[in-house]
């Protein structure tokens, strides 16, 4: 009995002693922090994705509270509503940003952009990109090793094993930009998000000359400039043999889609415009037939040849200067298509 008593007593004394020490230590080393930081952190989504430029939500909350002007700060995950709520709480002016979505600008599927060699290194786009041009003849397009998928904290981007390209789920994508930073080829872009996930964009980032592109990939932009001419809003510019549609100026009129001879301009969430009977420069190009949205069969081979010829004429010098890629390159397309 006595033993029990002493034990309990000793433990009690020890406990009290420890509590006192802890109390004074806590007093001495207390860090004064604005309680609003905790509140703001709670209002943020808590994904810690780094899309705002800070290491995590805490860093963002800290900056939101401490800075007077928070118009530069924006949480892409929480979006405008979240920022408005925080701004109202802090009594500051919020940044306004339109919703955006990550867009993969490469249409070089396994079928359209045949493999000419086999990558056997570490499964990382960054490693492959620092080594060489990639498994296909195209030195600009998607490498297909999935750095973007690994970077996504929202399960919004996945590789499609059939095409070998990543696909974004626009409903899950928060436009945090992690995949944009992860992609060493800069294939992914944050573009304006239209209602119903509609989109029109050039699904190619190749700056090679038309003939070089044609050789490597059947879905690449050859920089012919037809889309630029047809655009009524001045949204399309062609620079370095590559067309770019400015998402701020584009009105989704879809005229350019029908003009593109290679189908590099991608149309999502809408039907293409009806085919015009009028026959301009490349009459048999029948571009809409190969579009993504309708599951139309392949364009007539004659059409493709016509396009190829047009491209060859456009850049004859480039064709000669272009090197033959590995010997297999010239043979492969005929095998696979």
């Amino acid at each position: 009995m006595e033993v029990l008593l002493y034990t309990i007593l000793t433990l009690c004394v020890l406990g009290v002693l420890a509590a006192v020490i802890l109390y004074f230590v806590a007093q001495k080393f207390r860090v004064e922090e604005d309680p609003r930081i905790d509140e703001v952190e709670k209002m943020l989504p808590g994904a810690n994705c780094g899309g705002c430029g800070f290491a995590g939500c805490r860093g963002m909350a800290d900056a939101l509270v401490k800075r007077d002007d928070i118009s530069e700060l924006f949480c892409p995950v929480g979006g405008g509503d979240c920022m408005k709520a925080i701004a109202a709480y802090l009594g500051k002016a919020a940044a306004e940003k339109q919703p955006e979505v990550a867009t993969v600008r490469c249409g070089g599927t396994c079928e359209k952009r045949p493999r000419t060699n086999e990558y056997n290194g570490a499964k990382s786009c960054a490693v492959a990109a620092s080594l060489y041009a990639g498994e296909t003849g195209c030195a600009f397009g998607c490498l297909g090793l999935g750095d973007c998928v690994a970077a996504c904290a929202f399960d919004a981007i996945h590789m499609n094993p059939e095409t070998g390209l990543p696909e974004v789920d626009p409903d899950k994508c928060t436009a945090c930009g992690a995949c944009v930073k992860a992609c060493p080829k800069m294939v992914i872009e944050l573009r304006k998000k239209w209602p119903k996930n509609r989109a029109v964009y050039v699904s190619c980032v190749s700056k090679d000359k038309g003939a070089v592109v044609m050789k490597a990939c059947k879905a690449g932009c050859i920089g012919c400039g037809k889309c630029e001419k047809v655009c009524a809003f001045g949204a399309i510019t062609v620079e370095n043999n590559l067309a770019y549609i400015d998402p701020q100026k584009c009105k989704l009129c879809r005229k350019c889609v029908n003009e593109c001879p290679t189908g590099a301009i991608k149309l999502v969430g809408m039907d293409p415009l009806p085919k015009e009977p009028k026959a301009p420069a490349a009459p048999k190009a029948a571009p809409a037939a190969e579009k993504v949205a309708p599951a139309a069969p392949k364009a007539a081979p004659a059409a493709e040849k016509a396009v190829e010829k047009a491209a060859e004429k456009a850049a004859p010098a480039a064709e000669k200067a272009a090197p033959k890629t590995a010997p297999a390159a010239t043979k492969e397309p005929s095998h696979e298509s």
């Binding site: 493999r115 060699n117 056997n120 080594l131 498994e135």
Partner: peptide, 10 residues
């Protein structure tokens, strides 16, 4: 040559 060339870092 029948095979595609294999590429990997050193």
């Amino acid at each position: 040559m029948a095979n595609k060339l294999i590429v990997a870092p050193a």
